[in-house]
Design a protein around this nucleic acid. Structure first.
Lengths: 217, 217
DNA sequence: CTGCTTCTCCTAACACCGTTCGAACTATGG
DNA sequence: CCATAGTTCGAACGGTGTTAGGAGAAGCAG
């Protein structure tokens, strides 16, 4: 990002170095905020602390973020983007059991690997915090990718997806609350997928059976 | 240890009115704390606010509780006691599907009916808060009752209970996070129990089958 | 009743919090 | 070089949980 100026003779594209530096500092602040939250708890973040972690005093942070909640919002967006990036990179086979196992395992591991991020992304815990529309859009996008994948596997009923997300978030929250760092619930993923698939397939089966006996196509 | 002085003749036992009044005030403070938390968020509780809700100033609260966290602890204990009381009162038939549905539905409804209580009891969200041993014991007791019930229904593997609690906490957390006040996940309880039971029975079946083919009893 | 103790409640204050203001400083563009 | 925009910071404001110390009420002994 530094060497590619002057693509041409003389006419150097005027890169806004000011804005670049600003974005870099913003990112540095957010990274330090994650670090502080992991140390002190999500709600234990102190702006004076955070500022000194990046070599500033508290008021200077307000050149980069409107408020403390805006910092949480940037963290929220970053966490959602991480999830989205990871989900679109997951390998897909089209085979129900395999793909469901892949996605569910990834979800539980994503949640369990960073309980602060899980708290910020999936629990409403900070008084007054609400993701901005832009950040929320990323969140929706990530879940939408999962939903599409799920439908591609042949599960059309929205209730099926609701049941699957419940199982996923249940495994994750139990893992985080009762065995942080361990695998007591993580190792149940294969079992859970087997359980889910058997149930969903049995359900669709009895439904189509009911339809055919009623003479529908 | 307070009321049983003067074990003797009719003489009205000298009740420690001081201590009784004190306990009543403590309870009043805790009740007001629930109310304030439901209005301002669990972490949004302010001692000056809480004090004025019971007609005091903030420092007076310290006659009744050692700290703000001690108030959270009293709330935690009360919430756990509510859960325990409700669980032991649930009707039991001994029939697997019926009883599992009863307990799971109760759990999800208990969680969903008070998201502040759910946050305090089941999520680690307040920096520095950790239930006291006495409060934690009530929590363990409640879950132990559920666990015993579960084992009485014939599910011996601890992993089975883990899977069941995961499904319960997943339904609850999804209900609270994504449809507070509604029933989008609540109405999946019957489905979820059916799914669980089918899975657990299929599992025990294949296990006993594997054992008998290996010649074990 | 008077004294004495104990408990309750208060005001004042401390250290910290998020946030705002306004002044100093610095780097950039003309 | 100068003007301007962006950055940093000290000081301060109103809030937080918490502590110290004193005033007043309640209970009990004589």
């Amino acid at each position: 990002m530094l060497g590619e100026a002057e693509t041409d003779v003389g006419s150097a594209p005027v890169r806004d170095r000011r804005a670049e530096q600003r974005d870099r500092t913003r990112e540095e602040i957010v990274a330090a905020a994650w670090e502080r939250c992991r140390a002190e708890g999500l709600a234990g973040l102190s702006l004076r602390d955070l500022a000194s972690a990046v070599g500033m005093r508290a008021p200077s942070l307000y050149s980069y973020f409107d408020s403390k909640l805006a910092i949480y919002d940037a963290m929220f967006a970053e966490g959602c983007q991480q999830f989205l990036d990871e989900v679109v990179d997951l390998p897909r086979t089209g085979e129900t059991m395999t793909d469901l196992t892949t996605s569910l395992r990834h979800f539980v591991e994503f949640c369990a690997s960073d309980h602060v991020r899980h708290q910020l992304l999936f629990q409403r815990t900070i008084p007054g915090f609400e993701p901005s529309p832009e950040s929320y859009a990323i969140s929706v996008q990530g879940l939408e990718v999962l939903g599409e994948w799920f439908r591609d596997l042949g599960f059309d009923d929205p209730a099926d997806l609701d049941l699957a997300t419940a199982v996923g978030s249940g495994l994750a929250s139990q893992q985080i609350s009762n065995d942080p760092g361990g695998d007591r619930w993580l190792r149940l993923v294969d079992d859970a997928v087997e359980m889910l698939v058997a149930h969903l397939e049995r359900k669709t089966e009895t439904q189509t059976q009911a339809r055919t006996t009623r003479g529908e196509p």
